[in-house]
Amino acid sequence: MGREALDDMCRMCEWLGDGDIWYKNPRNYANRMYKLREPGKKATPFTGGAEGLASGLNRAIQAKADGDLETYQQIIKEINERDATRPGGQVLPLQDCIDLVRDIGTPVAAMHCICRKTTRAEEEQSINEYSCLGLGTGMFKWERWPERYRGGVQFLTPEQAAEFLEYWDQRGMVHMVMQEGGDFIGGLCNCDYPDCVPIRQRVDYGLNYRLTKGENICEVDYERCNGCGECLGRCQFNALKYEATIDKPNIDPMMCFGCALCMTACNRQAIRLVPRRQYAALQYVW
């Protein structure tokens, strides 16, 4: 399993990183290729969200809405205990996404966003509308499940994929790697609150293992910041706000997911990424 995992790694890096960041490990883009189904066993069909309705989370939310907080908290606790034992998605900054599609995450295909299809009945029909990236050879099988890949897919060159990611970053979308089957990174999502299901599950319901925070946090360089406010409104995690006292933005490091959307909006390079593990009280906050 490679080098010994460091204490301050997120659990995916510990399990799948071979000593480094898990989504930079080429192995995690290839595993599926070698996975064979048991003889006689059928593929699990996509259910398009139907399973979500019968899920524990849905029961929890209905209990919460009905005023039964005890049941709500109990179900959330059970889901978290189960999720802790398996990988989930993780937020990553634009530059890491671009490195990923240029170096290891090929082939890359643009496709519709399943979350916004579900929450807003969004239909993305062509490359001008697609907002999600599917990774790996599994994408060649999309025609078997045209409803899951509604609107089709379009394979992109690494350069096109980088441009695609820059476009959605400009539009204010958080980038996330999504794993499938436990050890295969099959998606690079671009989404925002409240339409993104993983963001929402984490922010609203405390399902913290569904979406892990990024490797870094964003920090304002107050020498460079002139308080223009371009970054305000970019944060999907309630970490960034305008602080009247100092007349400049303020980022709460405990809340920050390191998505770097505030950083990419800054024209003065006044926001920088700092590794989470640099701070004693943040290195275990995932």
Partner: peptide, 29 residues
């Protein structure tokens, strides 16, 4: 939230077919 009632291999669900998609008030809280 809206989802296809059933996802069939090789078929893109017809969104105008009654009952093909189901609506639910998932995030009621």
């Amino acid at each position: 939230a809206v989802h296809a009632a059933k996802i069939v291999r090789g078929v893109e669900t017809d969104r105008t077919e009654p009952g093909a998609y189901l609506l639910a008030a998932v995030y009621r809280d």
